[in-house]
Simulated scan of single mutants.
Amino acid sequence: MKIIKGLAALFTAAMLAAPALAEDYPTRAVEFIVPWSPGGGSDTLMRLVSANIEPHLGVELPIINMPGVGGTVGLREASRRDADGYTVSQVHEGLLMATLTGLTELTWEDFEPIALMTASPQFLITKSTDSYSNFDEFVAYAKERPNELTMGVTLGGLPHLFAAMIEQAYGLKFKYVGYEGTGERVRAAVGGNLDLIIGDVASSLEFAKNGDLKFLAAGSAERHPAVPEVPTFREKGEDMLLTVTRGIVMPKGTPAEVRNVMEAALQKLAQDETYIKQTNNVGSQVTFMGQDDYRAYLANLDATVKSLASVIVQ
């Protein structure tokens, strides 16, 4: 009887403690694992989240970069963290590609989706060269040189898929070189070690202004205001949208009460004028979705990526 009463007391205490946990959460900094190298689009955009979230969350959200194996090293670590609300991580379409190609056993369903925050159109970008000056000249040049132009991608990741879509659409053939993140690819192209990369405004615009890189075509529906002179793939005859969305997740099993607190803080951040302006300034758009909508988005996106993956999964 004493044992039963003891168990009942523990159960009651646990039930009472759960709301208290949510009511007090967060009481300390929440670690933000970004599974990519510093300097890339994900790192740049997530640092804006980190820099502006404290007034809305009440605590700091310090960035921890954990790059490796197509973004899966950091996500593996994030998936193993305690589901107590004190770890968040960032995901984008690359996780779905890594799952499909066998790069990782992780899936998006191994996490609790909290909020989608940004959408970033991707661009075909070239190193500084006299061989071609615009997209049409590039296509003509590349067609005459199959397997000669080096394309920097995350092998088996989303940039690889986007590059393969460009190959297929325009009858080209690239020589692929693997890099972990956008930042590494950008530096390689700036240094003349790559001919082409798939990149974004956040990681590449300043180098384009300096003349080290050149934007050839945009994966957005319309021309991007940061580079209005760059045509879209749609203008160049192909109905292709190349976009990376970035969202925040928590370890599987994080209590709903805690998830709701983080979601509410991120929603407030998405309405913060300073954050919106900073995000726009690096070439991305704030595109907020809460838990339910983000979960549905990932499920639909998973089906879409699987339908496209045959382009690179042989």
Rank of each mutant, 00 (worst) to 15 (best):
V139L: 03
L149C: 04
L155H: 04
I166G: 12
A164V: 12
A218D: 02
M97K: 01
L61N: 07
G6E: 14
P19E: 12
V261Y: 00
V69Q: 12
T182Q: 07
V249R: 01
T87Y: 12
V49R: 04
E31P: 03
T245C: 10
K5G: 05
A256C: 13
I63D: 02
T304D: 08
E273P: 10
E180C: 11
L61K: 05
E235Y: 04
G94H: 11
E235Q: 08
N300H: 10
T72I: 03
T254C: 00
Y170H: 09
P26I: 07
P121M: 00
T126L: 07
L75M: 13
K209Y: 03
M250C: 10
K2E: 12
D212S: 09
E31Y: 08
G94S: 13
E184R: 08
V73C: 11
I53N: 03
E180Q: 15
E273W: 08
P159S: 10
V249I: 11
M250W: 06
A163S: 15
F288E: 08
M1C: 09
I197N: 01
G237Y: 01
E148S: 14
E109I: 03
K209L: 00
N65F: 14
D136L: 14
Y25S: 00
S89F: 14
T304I: 04
E105M: 06
R185N: 14
V313N: 09
L158G: 01
K127W: 12
G183Q: 08
E93D: 15
A264L: 05
A83S: 15
G171K: 10
I276N: 11
I125Q: 05
V261S: 00
D239V: 05
P26F: 13
S50N: 13
T126G: 13
E144P: 00
G71T: 13
T279F: 02
E263F: 10
E144T: 11
